[in-house]
Design a protein around this nucleic acid. Structure first.
Lengths: 216, 216
DNA sequence: CGGATTTATTCATCACCGTTGAAATGCTAC
DNA sequence: GTAGCATTTCAACGGTGATGAATAAATCCG
């Protein structure tokens, strides 16, 4: 019972590369980077192990290629930046929740973040993107004194939400509804955007700061 | 040049177990779980590979044993719960910063958290401890409506601080001084502890809310 | 003291992992 | 058609964590 396929190229034009990529994506998301072996992917694709190296160079290369087509999280922010400044935190929260709970984008982002936390090379990339695309933009939008630090305080809370809700799945944060999240996190988020000395005036946005303001 | 040690037990009473544990701790903290091989630890300890399995069962067992003697993060909270309620957030922030920047406890906690995020079994343990020791206690201390959810909003921010500052080392949060952290995160943290509907009155703790203890 | 038991240690080996180089085969351009 | 390129399998390598058997010291017990 010699079932080994003949040696060279297969007849027809089967897109083997795409098949491997599909299987890899599904497996990596479901089981995590280290738990998935190249051999098992090759077996599931009905393909020799070496073909994966041929197409993607290495296991890391395959992982990167499989998870490449994620959404760009910066778009959520760009969208949220456009509306009424008074409700900016709510919009960001809604957007973040929508993206991270999207059945295709969410798991991809989670897998990427998981790996960023343990793989320094990958982590540096995430770090750079977040700093440039998130912190700097919020800081520019904020203006005023210590804008970058206020943006950081904002980012801390968004990051905390993501990690506790989606990575560690801590309760009760993991099972709260989006409305509850907005209700409980919105005020603190808004407060973090203000300048630290200031008191919050009831019923209005902190005065004297038109949204197109000066740089930090 | 046959340098192989004789087979059985060594003379004297060398505490080989402790030696292995020491080396393992240093290496795991410096290089991370996956980068360290049991063989390299065994070599550095001048010991056969199988001895590690004999003492600790598996690589995971060794990792757990090597990182077991960490501080109890719940103590930080217990300490902070005792003082003036108005400055509770500041005390927690100072305590968290002190522990996570401690040269011995800090790296241990970071390594544990890193692994908790990628290893579901280990993550479940962290999850349980945090929920029981942190969230529940803060909720009990808070009292009032939706105490557990307000405590969760608090925990989100503390968790976000830890992840962004110590795990991902995002700027500018990673290089801010403790004073700056307290200045920028304190107000948002205090706001998260209040009940969501309320407006913050300047200069005092939230006044007596209507006792309509509605579950959210 | 001396034999039996427990504890510590090495050796040899296993199955599996990711990577690599060589060979074989089909497809495409000239 | 045939030369070259893209795809595919095969075979092997060194490295990994785990495990069972052999051996020697320490300890217990009479």
């Amino acid at each position: 019972m010699n079932k080994s396929a003949p040696r060279g190229r297969r007849p027809g034009s089967p897109d083997t590369r795409a098949v491997i990529l599909d299987i890899a994506r599904r497996r990596f998301l479901a089981e995590g980077y280290h738990a998935v072996t190249l051999r098992s992917i090759a077996a599931e694709a009905g393909v020799d192990l070496a073909l994966i190296s041929y197409f993607f160079g290495s296991k890391k290369g395959l992982f990167g290629a499989a998870l490449a087509l994620a959404v760009n999280p910066a778009e959520v922010l760009a969208e949220a930046l456009k509306g009424d400044p008074a409700t900016f935190p709510q919009r960001v929260l809604r957007g973040v929740l929508a993206v991270w709970e999207d059945p295709v984008a969410g798991p991809t982002l989670i897998a990427m973040l998981r790996n960023a936390i343990q793989e320094p090379a990958f982590g540096a990339l995430v770090k750079e993107v977040v700093e440039r695309e998130i912190v700097d933009r919020v800081a520019a939008w904020l203006g005023g004194a210590a804008a970058r630090k206020r943006a950081a305080a904002f980012g801390v809370q968004i990051g905390g939400l993501i990690v506790t809700r989606y990575l560690l799945r801590l309760e009760p944060i993991a099972s709260m509804t989006p409305d509850e999240i907005v209700r409980h996190l919105g005020p603190g988020l808004r407060r973090a955007l203000q300048e630290p000395g200031q008191r919050q005036e009831p019923g209005q946005r902190p005065a004297g700061r038109p949204p197109g303001g000066d740089r930090s």
